[in-house]
Simulated assay, not measured.
Amino acid sequence: MAAGPALRTGADSTDLVFAEGGGTRAQAVRAVLGAGRDALFAPVVLGGFSVLLGLVLFIAFGVGLGTVLLVLALVSAGEVLLLAPLGAYADLRAFYRVEFGPPAAPERLRFVRTGRVDPWLPVSELSRFVIVHRIQEPYPGDRRPAAHTYDLRMVLRHNQQAPSVRSRAGDPTRLAEELKALLAPAGVRVELDPPQRPPPTPAPLPLDLRRLRLRQLRRRLTPTLTTDRRRAPSARAAGAFGFRHFVGNRAYSMRVACGQ
């Protein structure tokens, strides 16, 4: 699980860091190359659809094998060419950090994306931060502590796109206090929702209990299997009796036809 954003104070600004790096052309090039690499796996992930399409063309329409392979190659190339630009676009628009300047009493902010840095905005454009705290309790008997995660969302006044993160590990109370101390002079609200406690995940079955359930299932199935085995000789005997009865009737009919 990814770690949550952190506040870092520098010489010119205080940064709310979502991920390391960003804001350079080199990072943009790496993002585009990574999106292209990930798109190459699309034909593997969507292989079931391609196989189904090939079977329909081959069986239902009688298309030759060479034509089917050509169509599947074109479909795979189309998947790569479609998903690569979409992945690159999403990666290039991702937020890496938010810079507040000056560090002590912020008056402006800007967003740092993958390959560029947005222009400065007045801090009054930021309406509020919303932090949703979640506590995942362990199942009974688990010695691990409860897992604390949270969602962080920035709300701008003019419905502009703002960064948000989901299911990050960390202490949301500490982050809320740091944001309040930084942005309270500028009139920016920081809302920390009450902790949400989803039901604990069910405990995994111990190995002994799984063996016990398999043994009980085997015992339930054993009478049925035994009954079927006992019935099998009776069926064979009935078949043999029917065959002998049929042969006897044929022999009697032949004797009657011969006048015996």
Score class of each variant (00 low, 15 high):
M1G: 09
A3R: 03
A6G: 10
G10T: 00
D12A: 07
S13C: 05
F18G: 00
A19N: 06
A19T: 09
G21T: 02
G21C: 02
T24F: 01
R25G: 15
A26W: 05
A26E: 06
A26T: 06
A26P: 00
A31C: 05
D38T: 15
D38M: 11
D38A: 15
A39T: 07
L40N: 08
F41M: 11
V44P: 04
G62K: 05
G64P: 14
G64A: 12
S76T: 14
A77Y: 09
A77E: 13
P85S: 09
A88I: 06
F95P: 00
F100L: 05
F100C: 05
A104V: 12
V112E: 01
R116E: 05
V117P: 02
V123R: 00
S127E: 13
E137F: 01
E137M: 03
Y139M: 02
P140I: 06
A147H: 08
T149C: 04
L156M: 10
Q160N: 06
A162E: 07
S164R: 04
V165W: 09
R168T: 12
R168V: 15
R168P: 05
A169T: 12
D171I: 02
D171F: 02
T173W: 04
L175G: 07
L179M: 03
V190N: 01
Q196W: 08
R197F: 15
P200Q: 06
P202H: 03
P202R: 02
L205V: 15
L207E: 13
D208G: 08
D208E: 13
R210I: 13
R213I: 10
L214Q: 12
R219Y: 08
L221M: 10
T222I: 09
R231Y: 11
A232N: 12
A240I: 13
A240H: 09
F246Y: 15
V247K: 05
A251L: 14
S253T: 15
V256F: 08
Q260Y: 14
